[in-house]
Write a protein that binds this DNA or RNA. Sequence first.
DNA 1: TAGATTGTTAATCGATTAACAATC
DNA 2: TAGATTGTTAATCGATTAACAATC
Lengths: 212, 212
Amino acid sequence: MDKNNKVSIPVIRRLPRYLRYVNMLESEGVKKVSSRELAELLGTTASQVRQDFNLLGGLGRQGIGYPIDELKRELEQRIYAETPLDCILIGAGSLGSAIARYLKNVAKGYNLIGIFDNSEEKVGAKLEEYTCLNIDTLSEFCINHNPVVAVLCVPTSAAEQMVPELIKCGIKNFWNFSHYNFAKLNDDVKVENVHIRESLEALSYRIKHEIN
Amino acid sequence: MDKNNKVSIPVIRRLPRYLRYVNMLESEGVKKVSSRELAELLGTTASQVRQDFNLLGGLGRQGIGYPIDELKRELEQRIYAETPLDCILIGAGSLGSAIARYLKNVAKGYNLIGIFDNSEEKVGAKLEEYTCLNIDTLSEFCINHNPVVAVLCVPTSAAEQMVPELIKCGIKNFWNFSHYNFAKLNDDVKVENVHIRESLEALSYRIKHEIN
DNA sequence: TAGATTGTTAATCGATTAACAATC
DNA sequence: TAGATTGTTAATCGATTAACAATC
């Protein structure tokens, strides 16, 4: 919509961060903030803050700064879906359980509507008030409930099988904790990867080679 | 050590990915791979693969490609610590439990030596064969066992309190799942952030604004 | 030899930072 | 008015991609 096309991925990844700090400042009763102050809090530059906020539509005022309430409203309006996004979780292991809990109790803009697993011991179990469903019932579930996001908390090999099926079910958005590679997929499929292993290995690399 | 200073953060984040694919190819019995083939698998460019692999010290051979076994050896040698890095986990909630499990059973190059929490119900409980310890015993534990990495699976407010204490205990490396901001900290402190919330919010932004 | 593919330099692209006129 | 701070353009920086001689 309108000029959002301008917003690049690096900027998008910074917006939630800004929102966190804006919320923090608001809860402290702060009414306005300058790009310099915010940059200092975040450990970035005032230039970057201004460049980024500019995309939000000129909320700032010369000599004054940015009004917290407007920043918050604008950021929330941009980030959160108007109607919560219905999502399903695939994989009810320990990570899946943690993520289910997060989606249910913390995440804004999402609505967890089902949890699936393929193992006998998991199916039927309770997770956060959800009964874990058999993966075989997935397509039927999707026809009835039309989830828009799938959260992948399964091993990569399982994701390999699941993803084509999920896409067949009409799901185009993925929050991916597996290492399944969406690279060569359709352009209209959106994926946010959380690659825990790669993060941990980057850390050991940096420790070993003293890179900050 | 030697020419590793050259390796930039973006490259470091790609190395674990290369290693995954190299392992995959090896398990399929493949003996050599060209930059073009690997690029296709990963969804990147042959140029980037060659640039990156060049930093590993010229393993490739013109007209042939890169030998899988040497690639694997070199990548592993770079990424994993010679001696596993002793680490402690702070926060035994559902995410902490999942991460403990991962560190114990999956992660290479790390050795989980203790789990801490501040809540009465958690302390004394068993997680993956570890008995959850009281956070008050942290500094004593650190004096005795000298962990080198702390994994933060606590809320941001708890991290705010904990981090200075952990640093006082001599810990300089952090795998951070909280939103505590290390920005203005000492230069010799290394942090890898896994910001789940920000990833999820970036996804909803992209869905809302149709950005791929 | 001819074909393939590297290593590496050069060109391009995009993101970050700096600068400064506009203006509150 | 003077000081502060924005919005925005220009400069810089770094990362990615392209090109090609070297060589297996």
